[in-house]
């Protein structure tokens, strides 16, 4: 095997929130090589606008939607959930641990819980009818789709009829779990098959890692 010198800057430069891949691998469904590969991706994302090795909201939104300025409620919510420390940036450890939930091998309960927090807009521990309506309205508006108020009202009411089995006007985590079990498509987006092949995206990096592993 010839020289497999990586041209990656990741060998030399570690971002401010860098964490040991071995530890991250032990806490997530990723292998050490996959965490290393995610670090390559993290470096790209975290230096796309502000070159400080931390993912800012604009960089996250740029990667998700190809724009950094247009307001997107969902990008905001996902960013906030990834930003566990609530310091306005996604650090490497937060990035890996959060993405771990989206791994095909991650526990279903974790995916369901993450989705619940996504919809629990005001973080009250419940999905309330009003906030669900607000989310539907905001997202339809952001995506230039139109449904009449009556139609939205009726869909949200029907959703609550089905999901709010305790009939207290809000969906708690247990009701959410039961609802998801009846509608598994609701957490379809919580699994990224691509994460199983993450190392394939960075072949030069794999070569380097393999050499390191064999040393």
């Amino acid at each position: 095997m010839g020289c497999v010198c990586s041209t990656s800057s990741s060998e030399k430069v570690k971002t401010p929130g860098y964490e040991d891949p071995t530890i991250l691998a032990s806490e997530t469904p990723f292998t050490v090589s996959e965490v290393d590969a995610l670090y390559e991706l993290y470096l790209k994302l975290s230096n796309s606008i502000i070159e400080d090795g931390l993912i800012h909201k604009e960089e996250f939104q740029l990667a998700l939607f190809r724009n950094k300025n247009e307001k997107n409620l969902f990008a905001d919510r996902i960013f906030d959930l990834f930003d566990v420390k609530r310091n306005g940036v996604i650090e490497f450890g937060e990035f890996v641990r959060s993405l771990g939930v989206f791994h095909p091998n991650a526990a279903l309960e974790d995916k369901i819980a993450f989705a619940f927090r996504l919809y629990d807009l005001r973080q009250t521990g419940y999905i309330e009818k009003q906030e669900l309506k607000e989310m539907v309205l905001a997202l339809l508006h952001e995506s230039d789709l139109y449904l009449s108020d009556e139609m939205i009202e009726s869909i949200v009411d029907k959703t609550f009829e089905d999901a709010d089995t305790k009939e207290d006007g809000r969906i708690d985590e247990d009701e959410w779990k039961a609802f998801v079990s009846q509608h598994p498509s609701l957490i379809k987006n919580m699994t990224l098959p691509y994460l199983k092949d993450i190392t394939l995206a960075f072949p030069s990096f794999i070569a380097r890692t393999e050499v390191e592993d064999s040393e």
């Binding site: 969902f74 989206f102 997202l139 995506s143 959703t159 609701l186 987006n189 691509y194 995206a201």
Partner: peptide, 24 residues
């Protein structure tokens, strides 16, 4: 219709993290 509010949110939000990996 079986469409529920969460489906609408999911469709209209374009919630799909796979685009994080688009440019490699």
């Amino acid at each position: 219709s079986n469409l529920n509010a969460f489906d609408i949110i999911s469709f209209s939000s374009g919630f799909d993290l796979s685009s994080l990996f688009d440019e490699k």
